[in-house]
Design a protein around this nucleic acid. Structure first.
Lengths: 206, 206
DNA sequence: CCAAATTGGATACCTCTACTATCTATGTTA
DNA sequence: TAACATAGATAGTAGAGGTATCCAATTTGG
């Protein structure tokens, strides 16, 4: 198909598709002539993926590019691919230096017995949150996070279960990315709704 | 204190503080003369809150203003205040019209027996996620979300437990907001780490 | 088979966000 | 009293995420 059909089928304007091509989010089509190129279903799928990551999840165009690059260069080692892909998405701003809360995060991970990379950005995000709460006069230490971490463990089991039975390593990596990243807003939405429900339950005290 | 001290103690530049004043995120100081105003500890605290919401959680300045407005106008009804405050934060882009997935979300909420407002934006966020996954060839229906929702219920219990024992309604509303909103990146970080750990566990198959 | 429409690629431009800089009239301080 | 700080107003800036226009080449409908 040519660019106008790609545009029609994806709902993304031709100029925006050209922009994604320029930015390296979408691979170039197969050139058939000096001013003609041919796109296929893979391009359509990639375009939908880009819109899901930027729209639903709210990732920036540059973060999305980094993520897709990792997927494209995947080595067949899904564990590694997923780790690299998630490392590309920042969850909070990087703390200036080494926050004193980093030691607390280490204590939490040790208590949990988790096997987590030393330089995982998720560690910095946790430290940043603890530091912020502290500066706002709501001190919470790593022990507060422990029960949340136990629930996160069970969430991760659900996540990994959904990848069971996928044989093709490329498909596996893509599903892993999708279910991890796109489910994030959904999980926050579920928490919001559960809070509303729990708050209502306690409000109408019984 | 005057603006320069507020700047020094908060780490936010004087010009940025003036910007927040203009944008209505920070209330004006008490005027002592035509070109002089006095700020207090409340201003400092508010400034730290603004930086936490925009920096750690990544909220936009306008969303942050909406949130703080709700807090300021709180009626003493914490359940209502929290609901309004969370409603001000979009979790994903609004779907154009009524997505067909909205019915699925209704089914989920019904199955859970949750008491959740009909127009909660979290509902739209869930529908949007389901629609995206579907368009990407990873169909998931509401039943997939059920076990996640059960874990969200338990997360919400932890959240509400942390507010137990706070008497002052203003403090209660502020803590509720902080723990709900600022904990969001932390919870996502915990899930990432738990996934990495679970993936490693399964990778080194035993 | 030729005029009108489409295409790929390049470049310029635009809107929004979150600041940042400058200016002026007034205050404060050493 | 001279140097410096301050409030408030206005203008400017950098980056993100597109959008618009132009051109030469290429299809395609009549």
């Amino acid at each position: 198909m040519r660019i106008s059909e790609l545009s029609r089928r994806s709902g993304v304007s031709v100029t925006t598709i050209k922009y994604y091509l320029r930015e390296g989010l979408l691979p170039a089509g197969r050139q058939t002539a000096a001013t003609q190129a041919e796109y296929d279903e893979q391009h359509l799928r990639r375009l939908r993926l880009i819109r899901a990551l930027t729209g639903v999840r709210g990732l920036s165009v540059s973060t999305t590019r980094d993520l897709l690059d990792v997927l494209d260069q995947h080595t067949g080692d899904t564990h590694l691919t997923l780790g690299l892909a998630l490392g590309a998405i920042r969850l909070a701003e990087e703390p200036a230096g080494q926050a004193p809360e980093a030691a607390e995060v280490d204590a939490l991970v040790k208590e949990l017995g988790w096997d987590v990379h030393e330089s995982a950005p998720a560690r910095a995000a946790l430290a940043e949150t603890l530091a912020s709460l502290r500066s706002l006069g709501v001190p919470r230490d790593w022990r507060t996070l422990l029960p949340y971490a136990r629930l996160a463990e069970r969430t991760a089991v659900l996540d990994l279960d959904q990848l069971d039975g996928i044989e093709d390593p490329l498909e596996l990596a893509e599903h892993a990315l999708l279910l991890t990243v796109l489910l994030e807003p959904a999980l926050l939405a579920l928490r919001r709704m559960a809070q509303e429900n729990e708050s209502a339950r306690r409000h109408t005290d019984h």
